[in-house]
Design a protein around this nucleic acid. Structure first.
Lengths: 347, 347
DNA sequence: CTGAAAGCGCTTACAG
DNA sequence: CTGAAAGCGCTTACAG
């Protein structure tokens, strides 16, 4: 076995209490003893057993991050990875470690969380839930574990961190409107994805506010793009009154769309302007480079962890400060929605 | 506080030993008592404190996954996320939890690992090291913590899981050779990335084996592509004897290349065929869809965890079975390297 | 400033 | 089959 506090105490000729105090950086230790202990600690390469520390201090010094299956499997991976990086960075900064829980299946996620939270392995958790009525949210609430949601909740009193997806959707559409587009569609609608639904609402509001209308034919569900989207785009572009610009639910969707348009020999942005969401690394590698709303995944992870840590420090489960923390997003304009010479509408 | 074993024992009218035995699923418990305990456990919603369990059983039932900074920050994110999913899935299957450690900076990674391993928070770790001489490898060895490396090691006796990057590089190049290409370049060379160096070696061997040669002008370092690669590709394609096909170090590099070629008004694959590595979700969304070697990130994560768990079960630190486990890769051919009508060399 | 002691919530021989 | 007891490696009043 490895070195224990007992061994260090013996070698340093002090009690384990003193060693503990030195490790904790407490002031009330005679300098002489402190030096002695420190040198032995170094010599023996002692490192306190954090399990024992957790047991006695009732603090795990760890937080969990639960990715619900839908989120984890979505091809949207760059987003998830950035989010993890943000969360782990913030957690480490406070000496906390980060557990990843990823449920394959509704129940598995909860089981893992259950083990983590109820087994006191973590002091709290960040939950990335795609849907505001995700069952795990209720579970966390009734289990009384401090947690922060990334996303929206329809319930009150749930501390959450999110971007304002509706405003982002509005901004994407408004950007196209200012470019002169009059017929703007929305592709990749997925009613089971909260963020997307909000973006869609923002899109509609922007059109309405600017006296524009949309047709149901301009709205494409996510399922229609599953096969690559060639058929869906062929349909969309064959409409008599076809849109000249599209807001896509996320970058992956936008890239599918661009590829499908390319297969149809339509040019982006000349024949169709496109804007995506998330500003993943792919956006700038796309041909043409894709305009996208940067949702700052790293920041979401970072601030969710920050907020959770704050709650833990105050031993509060509920939200302090605003229930909902909104992380700013920003539109990054690239070629896919650049103004084009000549008239916009080719239809 | 939450329910403890003591409380359950009291309510069930048995000793804590009995409760512990029931929870552990031991046979030697009178059915009557078992039922009684089980019902109380359910009623009180008791869940053992895993911290206490770990302390007494000397097993954390958790493993760590260390992403060195270079790996975590590489835009190569889809890869990392898949890898995490694989590892967490396998770990959970055995009732283990997964810690993520991500060092920003050489030292930070080691600090986090140190806390995790030496603090007995994890029983072992998976290390994703981009370079075989990553300092953390030595650290893990001297600290005696069981670990599995994802990648290569120049040292002996380090259990590792990896794909055969050299064979993969060979395969990518050979695929192009069979298509009739005689002048094949390699872009994105990064000597500090082990995997890439191996792919490069495989590429060279394939050319050599088939009586082809390469010129230094056909080999582009990663740095040259940092600005998007337009300049580098302009140079490459302006060569008198310019390559007709390129092996790219990874998908992100390949996408940069494709975009740069597009800007130069060169067609892929007609003017230049391209093959990438990793087969990230982007590959099929590219225009044209990108041929890529699927490196199975999910499998790498899964098998690394599997192997580590096996080592833990046997309480061995060294490799059992082959030191190096090779996960198969496979070439996925898409349009970027499809045969083209007519003569291949336009130079 | 320091040490002996109690205790965190469990598991596991050991003796019945 | 079952319980009392020791012990895992720490922290933290408490009394000096």
């Amino acid at each position: 076995m490895s070195v224990t506090i007992k061994e260090v105490a013996r070698r340093a000729g002090v009690s384990i209490s003193t060693v503990s105090r030195v490790m904790a950086g407490e002031a009330r230790v005679r300098p002489e003893n402190r030096r002695k202990v420190e040198s032995i600690v170094k010599e023996m390469d002692y490192s306190p057993n954090s399990t024992a520390q957790s047991l006695v201090s009732h603090a795990a010094n760890a937080i969990g991050l639960l990715l619900t299956e839908a989120e984890a499997e979505r091809a949207n991976h760059p987003f998830g990875m950035e989010l993890i990086r943000g969360a782990v960075t913030r957690a480490n900064r406070s000496g906390f470690d980060l557990f990843i829980g990823s449920g394959s299946g509704e129940r598995a996620g909860q089981q893992v969380m259950s083990r983590l939270v109820r087994g006191k392995r973590v002091d709290g958790a960040i939950v990335l839930a795609g849907r505001h009525k995700e069952a795990v949210i209720d579970w966390m609430r009734t289990n009384g574990a401090p947690f922060v949601l990334i996303g929206r909740s329809e319930q009150e009193g749930v501390p959450s961190v999110d971007i304002d997806n509706e405003a982002a959707g509005y901004e994407a559409a408004y950007h196209l409107i200012r470019l002169g587009h009059k017929r703007i569609g929305f592709v990749g609608l997925a009613t089971e994805r909260d963020a997307v639904e909000c973006r869609f609402r923002g899109y509609k509001r922007a059109l309405r506010d600017n006296g524009l209308s949309w047709r149901s034919g301009w709205i494409l569900e996510e399922e229609l793009l599953r096969d690559g989207g060639d058929r869906a785009m062929a349909y969309l572009t064959s409409l008599l009154q076809r849109p000249t610009a599209l807001v896509a639910a996320d970058d992956m969707t936008a890239l599918s769309v661009i590829r499908a348009l390319h297969n149809l020999e339509l040019r982006v942005p000349a024949d169709m302007a496109v804007v995506g969401f998330d500003n993943t690394p792919l956006a700038e590698l796309s041909v043409p480079p894709l305009s996208s709303i940067d949702t700052g995944a790293y920041h979401l992870g970072y601030w969710a962890a920050d907020r959770l840590l704050r709650m833990l420090r105050q031993k509060k489960n509920g939200a302090e400060g605003p229930e909902r923390l909104v992380v700013p997003h920003k539109l990054v304009v690239r070629e896919s929605s650049m103004p084009v010479r000549g008239p916009i509408s080719p239809a």
